[in-house]
Nucleic acid binder design. Structure first.
Length: 280
DNA sequence: GCGGTATGCCTAA
DNA sequence: TAGGCCTACCGCG
């Protein structure tokens, strides 16, 4: 489920698994040129792994960086080393001492320079999962934009890491219609929205999946929230909150799901206390 | 085996 | 705005 939480979790896991090691880098599928990276033994020294929104960066020595974007279909598979042979669609395999990471189906998997990495992150809005995020950039844009808030949340240059599932769920939890213009969204609500996104994404990182229900209390270890119960409106026929009909329409080429009862069109009240209370 | 579908995003018009 | 691209899975015949 590649929204921002997936990428940050991968960064954490892969750094732990492979950081500081001389990793064997290959492309079983052949569509990634690992030769640029590795020495004569087929290895490269992995120094750091960093996530920024939905982008992942593997920083190797000599300033060589592998940039990965999962797109819609990309997936990581984590296995103990020595791992069984990779499936033929494996774009990149990173083989460490104890763990092996396989990457399948990404939109992007390329070697970039530090300058190119900088150019990629410069295009992105603040990332709610990063300590260095500056939400004021997001607040300021929303306040002056007539763009529907439902479209702003999907615009990676305004806030990065939020995808279609979190978009639908965040708007639902705040009782906001996706078509509400940014500038009509009360500033206190926008700040509550940021806090809510931070909480939901962090929870997603911990649970390795998107769960926006159960009062946002972290599920106990091994406790699985059933898939049908993990969201309020996203890809549901009825609203989990009020049992009303969930409506779907296409906004900027992506399907939005919302509850017409819980999320009426019109600015919510200035009082953001109720919204803020939703924050974890 | 085929078609539809999905958590994304880029490009051409 | 439409189309293309990346892959796995599921339901259907």
């Amino acid at each position: 489920m590649p929204e921002g939480h997936t990428i940050h979790r991968a960064a954490r896991d892969h750094l732990r698994d492979l950081g500081g090691q001389r990793v064997v880098v290959t492309s079983p599928q052949g569509r990634f040129d690992a030769d640029v990276l590795v020495d004569a033994s087929g290895r490269a020294h992995l120094q750091h792994v960093e996530a920024y929104g939905k982008h992942l960066f593997y920083v190797f020595e000599s300033e060589r960086i592998v940039h990965v974007h999962l797109g819609l279909f990309g997936k990581f598979y984590r296995r103990r080393s020595p791992a069984s042979p990779p499936r033929s669609s494996t774009r990149m395999r990173l083989e460490g001492e104890a763990m092996t990471i396989d990457l399948v189906g990404p939109t992007a998997c390329d070697v970039v320079t530090p300058e190119q990495m900088q150019a990629i992150t410069a295009r992105l809005g603040p990332d709610p999962l990063r300590a260095d995020a500056k939400p004021r950039r997001f607040y300021a844009y929303v306040a002056r934009s007539k763009t529907p808030i439902g479209a702003i949340l999907m615009d990676q240059s305004r806030i990065c890491g939020v995808g279609n599932v979190y978009r639908a769920e965040v708007l639902h939890l705040l009782g906001i219609h996706p078509d509400l213009p940014g500038s009509s969204t009360p500033p206190a609500t926008v700040r509550a929205m940021w806090r809510l996104i931070v909480g939901l994404l962090r929870r997603g990182v911990e649970e390795k999946r998107i769960v926006t229900t159960r009062g946002l209390v972290l599920a106990k270890p091994r406790e699985r929230v059933p898939r049908s119960d993990s969201t309020h409106v996203y890809r549901r026929r009825t609203c989990r909150t009020c049992q009303g009909v969930v409506l779907t329409y296409i906004l900027r080429a992506r399907a939005v799901h919302y509850c017409s009862t819980c999320q009426p069109l019109g600015a919510p009240s200035e009082d953001a206390d109720s919204a803020a209370a939703l924050g974890p």
